[in-house]
Design a binder for these strands. Structure first.
Length: 438
DNA sequence: TCTGGGGTCCTAGGACCC
DNA sequence: TCTGGGGTCCTAGGACCC
């Protein structure tokens, strides 16, 4: 194949993608400098590695590796439970630093963002490469760990860049050199191309990303739907995927799933797990002032299949008791006492903002408003004293279980993140029985 | 990635209507 | 009772992302 540029105009748009290196582990090292240079692994509460520092990676630790196996290859590993409050806090600082350069920032995930720096060369008196380098340098210095960045004419190519060299890489890919990078990438390494598409491409004798980019448009239109067609255009240097710079105010659905080990067939225990998931989903609903009109409940079997049901609610609600009671009615439609289950989950959908809620002031809606006020109070107490200080009686068994495991997921913030003058409070947990048949 | 948790978007196909 | 054509809305499920 001839070596030919895919695009002449190098940066019609200058899109930067930035990715925190080993983000969770790095946050831990940044907060506690004594951990620097050590193999740090998060995910202790689940017994498998969620994120590991580069020191740990160098020793052969990989994602989802069991802690018992890690100890064998890396006896001095430091295991920590995930602490999302800290990670979110550092994530916010990460976005803030990038926003000093441009407001066109998409908060793509807790450890990644896109920034559109098109047109900043003149005002900043620097070329794009220098600007990208400056942003990265600010992040590294102010957050105390490194970031990898990629600059390209669109999001897809910027992502190729940020993955190109890790950790602490900065890769600039102008339009005229896209093809050199794509020649060295398999299709499945490209953002938006997953295992299914890549397997299909292999059958079509398309292996590298460059081979895909070189296919003609009719071929791509004929074989693929919109998402891959758009990715194909980006591989060819076009700007297709806009940045979503509006911060997320709402959700289309909210899901809560929890796996428990060992698996269980105990009806009461499994139901309480589901109840706790419902409670958590409702906390999130209320935080965003949303109510749900429908939902699905499901149990995850040992073989990873699901057994579930979908229910349309008779009215919008964000009150867990309502939903727990609905789940209770339908529970036996998905539960079988002879089957072992490993997880439960709930998805709330058809979400609407609370102001749209109908105001029929007779009957149930009144009670519902009262419940809403009650749970507003519950939210306040839980904010103050730690999540699940007050919780539904139906979740009792699940809460006991997680305490027994030493789960820190629900614990209040760790001490060095507390505001000045604040002290750590002793945890107390109060089950609450409101209008429930337990 | 022998399997954790939380999302989004897209398309095909059915229901229903004129 | 039979037979067209066309539009909209909704849902389920697939695929993908971190």
């Amino acid at each position: 194949m001839q070596d030919q540029p895919l695009s002449i105009n190098s940066f019609p748009r200058a899109i930067l993608h930035i990715d925190g290196d080993a983000f969770f582990a790095s946050c831990e090292q940044s907060r506690d400098p004594r951990l620097k240079g050590k193999p740090v692994i998060t995910g202790k509460e689940r017994g498998i590695a969620a994120s590991m520092s580069y020191e740990a990676k160098a020793r052969g630790v990989t994602r989802a590796m069991r802690l018992s196996d890690i100890k064998k290859i890396c006896p001095d590993a430091v295991f920590l439970p995930s602490d999302y409050e800290t990670y979110s806090l550092l994530s916010k600082r990460f976005y803030e630093i990038v926003r000093r350069y441009t407001s066109d920032v998409e908060e793509y995930s807790i450890d990644e963002c896109f920034a559109d720096i098109t047109g900043l060369r003149r005002p900043l008196r620097m070329n794009y490469s220098r600007i990208a380098g400056k942003i990265k340098a600010d992040l590294d210095a102010e957050l105390g760990f490194t970031f990898s960045a990629g600059l390209g004419p669109n999001k897809t190519i910027a992502k190729v860049g940020s993955k190109w060299k890790k950790p602490s890489g900065l890769t600039i890919i102008p339009g005229y050199s896209i093809h050199r990078y794509l020649a060295k990438k398999y299709t499945e390494d490209i953002w938006g191309i997953g295992p299914q598409t890549s397997a299909y491409l292999k059958k079509e004798k398309v292996n590298t990303a460059l081979e895909l980019a070189r296919k003609n448009e009719e071929w791509v239109r004929e074989k693929f739907t919109k998402p891959i067609q758009e990715t194909w255009r980006e591989l060819n240097g076009q700007f297709v995927f806009e940045l979503e710079t509006e911060s997320k105010e709402s959700y289309a659905s909210i899901q809560k799933v929890r796996t428990f080990t060992p698996p269980s067939r105990d009806r009461g225990f499994i139901f309480s797990q589901l109840s706790k998931n419902i409670e958590n989903a409702c906390i999130k609903l209320r935080r965003y002032s949303l109510s749900a009109k429908s939902g699905s409940f499901f149990l995850k079997l040992q073989n990873f299949r699901y057994s579930g049901i979908e229910v349309k609610f008779s009215r919008l609600t964000s009150v867990p008791n309502d939903i727990v009671n609905i789940a209770r009615i339908h529970f036996d439609e998905m539960y079988n006492s002879r089957t072992l289950y490993r997880a439960t989950g709930v998805t709330l959908s058809k979400l609407e903002e609370d102001k749209n809620k109908q105001l029929d002031l007779f009957g149930e809606a009144v009670r519902s408003e009262e419940m809403k006020r009650l749970f507003k109070g519950v939210d306040e107490v839980n904010d103050k004293f730690g999540k699940h200080t007050i919780y539904l009686g139906s979740s009792f068994a699940a809460n006991k279980f997680s305490q027994h495991l030493g789960d820190r997921g629900d614990a209040p913030q760790r001490k060095n993140l507390l505001a000045r003058g604040e002290t750590k409070r002793k945890r107390l947990a109060i089950p609450m029985f409101v209008g429930e048949v337990v």
